[in-house]
């Protein structure tokens, strides 16, 4: 059964600076995939949509594998395109 839950979203690097926001709480419909989560965030912040769609979502310090359906969720880290090395 789909359910609406409150989830903490945390931002890093360029995304945090563009949004002027390090974290926020949003309502998210679960179950959801990484793609669902990023699409929802892109909808909420249309100016940063392209950056959200190029980002990855991580939960408890692990990237969400693409296509995996998440049933329960408290916090998501949004990882914009990385540039280490």
């Amino acid at each position: 059964m789909p359910k609406l839950v409150r989830v903490e979203i945390r931002y890093y690097a360029q995304l945090r600076e563009d949004l002027r926001l390090s974290n926020e709480e949003i309502e998210l419909e679960l179950p959801a995939t990484e793609e669902d989560i990023l699409n929802r965030l892109a909808q909420l912040h249309p100016k940063q949509a392209a950056l959200f769609l190029a980002s990855r979502a991580a939960v408890e310090d692990e990237y969400l594998p693409r296509g995996t359906v998440v049933q329960d969720l408290r916090a998501v880290d949004v990882i914009p395109p990385v540039s280490g090395g």
């Binding site: 890093y12 690097a13 360029q14 991580a58 880290d77 990882i79 990385v82 540039s83 280490g84 090395g85």
Partner: peptide, 13 residues
């Protein structure tokens, strides 16, 4: 190692 760090690690510059 360097290729995977560049593509995967949550590091920004």
């Amino acid at each position: 190692i360097i290729d995977r760090i560049k593509h995967e690690a949550p590091i920004w510059k």
